[in-house]
């Protein structure tokens, strides 16, 4: 687990706060590879997942919805590398296409969540006052609801489907994340450079954008890597319960649902493969996120993960 790896002092000094963005992507990858082997493995999994999602049409031998009467419950073979389902649809192709859902939910929902979290967090943290007090009470209440329960109620409002889910999960995590961003904004506002900027008459907007926001950004990135696997899990759970992405879209969660379970008795691979894909994805994001967190801000280890 990443929280046990103590960075050697020399490393901690050479890989400081914003990772020296300028040193670029490859320096980051090399650092990851040298000091965070598990995190690097996670990074590779994430990259492979994105690659699969982008090139799904070329990787998958069939369309995800190609039915074939003769291949019902076909066991793994050359024709169907990991078997076929009750409609004779190639399982491998379905899982490959399912990665698109997973990636869109992960990035879409969390991108939305970050927009909400940043704007709400900046506004409440920067201006404070009675509006902040009211919003914080609302956030308190919002955070009390367990994620799946509130998401279920919201699916009932917005209806099932990929876009509604992205919006729902974006709202869910955005409002929760605003609390974290606000905390960081308050911490940044106490630093001397803000007072200096104010004293030379920098406008509120510019102060927020130029002096506060860049200092909040590393935290936002960390938050995002934590929330991506959570969003993917919640989508899968909702689809599993029958409230997520409707068929025939190849959602991994839906492929494991109660309706699908009866078919698994005939073809156990139907129950194994989608779950493996899902677990591997979550594993990859978790490991990558942990390593990133350690590299970006060693002081924050383990303080954000639980929700």
């Amino acid at each position: 687990m990443a929280d046990e790896i103590v960075l050697r002092p020399s490393v901690a000094a050479s890989v400081p706060f914003p990772l020296r963005w300028a040193r670029g992507f490859w320096a980051f990858v090399v650092t990851m590879f040298r000091y965070k082997p598990l995190g690097f493995a996670g990074f590779v999994i994430v990259v492979v997942l994105m690659f699969t999602a982008i090139f799904a049409d070329f990787i998958a031998p069939y369309e995800y919805n190609d039915t074939n009467r003769h291949d019902q419950f076909a066991p793994p073979s050359l024709k169907h590398p990991i078997g076929a389902d009750h409609l004779g649809r190639d399982l491998f192709s379905r899982i490959v296409h399912g990665s698109r859902i997973s990636v869109s939910i992960g990035f879409g929902a969390v991108a939305g969540a970050m927009c909400i979290a940043i704007s709400l967090g900046l506004l409440t943290g920067y201006y404070g006052g009675w509006l902040d007090k009211i919003i914080q009470r609302f956030v308190d209440g919002w955070m009390t609801f367990p994620g799946i329960v509130i998401a279920l109620a919201m699916v009932a409002i917005a209806g099932p489907g990929l876009w509604p889910l992205i919006i729902i999960l974006g709202l869910l995590f955005g409002i929760r994340g605003s609390r974290v961003v606000r905390g960081q904004v308050l911490a940044v506002m106490a630093r001397p450079h803000i007072e200096v900027a104010r004293s030379v008459g920098v406008s509120d907007l510019r102060l927020m954008a130029v002096h506060v926001f860049p200092n909040v950004l590393p935290l936002v990135i960390i938050l995002a890597t934590i929330e991506i696997p959570l969003a993917i899990t919640i989508e899968a759970s909702l689809s599993f319960l029958g409230f997520g992405i409707p068929p025939p879209a190849p959602s991994w969660g839906r492929m494991l649902s109660a309706e699908a379970r009866q078919h698994m008795l005939m073809a156990p691979w139907l129950g194994i493969a989608p779950g493996l894909a899902l677990s591997l994805t979550i594993f990859g994001w978790n490991m990558f996120g942990d390593a990133l967190r350690d590299l970006l801000d060693p002081a924050m280890r383990g303080s954000l993960g639980e929700r």
Binding site: L38, G271, I282
Partner: peptide, 20 residues
Amino acid sequence: TVVLADAVPHFWLATLILVL
């Protein structure tokens, strides 16, 4: 084991235990 356990969603575990 902890790292792996963290990545397995509840419902997949349940499905496996019911089906396999």
